[in-house]
Amino acid sequence: MSARSVLRAAPTVLRVGLAEAVAYRAELLVWVLTTTMPFVMLAIFSAAAIDGPIGRYGQTELAAYFLATFVVRQITGSWAGWQINVDVREGTLATRMLRPLHPLVAYALEHAAAIPMRALAAAPVVVILLATSARSGLSRDPVSWLLLLVSLALAWLLTIFINFAIGCLAFFIDSSQRVLEVYLAVFFVASGYLVPLDVFPPAARRALSLMPFRHQVALPVEIFVGRYDGRAAALAVELAQQAGWTLVALGLVALAWTRGVRRYGAFGG
């Protein structure tokens, strides 16, 4: 499969993917409602910080952090792991494999196509962020805003690659769904989704900084709330690490997919 033929197919695949995302808008809304945990955490932390800030987080900073978390997850979220799992188990992967477009490329394009609808879901929260006092907790550095886009793109890729890699486990074990659940549990805690990472004790923070998960949520959120304003060099280092993890994940995907498909061919769906 050449890059040219992917590029030729991309516009149509994206258009149809968007049409599908629009058709499933009710489900999208339900999905958005299931990802409201940051609001609960915001309420808890606000109650805890009622008589003075926790670390660097006062009421404004907390609001900015958790609202940004919600927005980042809307945009970078991926369901590819579950999708591959279902496609392998129910045999629908066969249909995808009969097409001369690499199934993983197809999944990625479908995800990209859903971004406008998901951005729409995040829009009201962005409005709240900008219209309320939480605004003062956001970045004021144009460089940060620019690099936020880079970081969001990398977070999107990293998340989808991790999903691919775990989804491919469905080729090898009956219950890759469980692995996805474990991943999600780790992700919630280690990505900064439920708790800002700098509230953790130092030892835990060091351990978390060695894992890829913080690059999925915490890094873009921290750029969003201005942690790297005027610190372009430090940010560049972080982005390089993020890109590094993304490449590692891509390597894992390539490995899991080739071996998985070979096995799929040997054992059948």
């Binding site: 955490m41 808890i44 805890a48 910080a49 926790i54 780790v186 805690v189 708790v195 509230v199 953790f200």
Partner: peptide
């Protein structure tokens, strides 16, 4: 794992 994710944010908040 789920039990510990229940507990981690909990202990972090109450540590503060």
């Amino acid at each position: 794992f789920w039990a510990s994710t229940t507990l981690l944010p909990f202990f972090v908040v109450f540590a503060a």
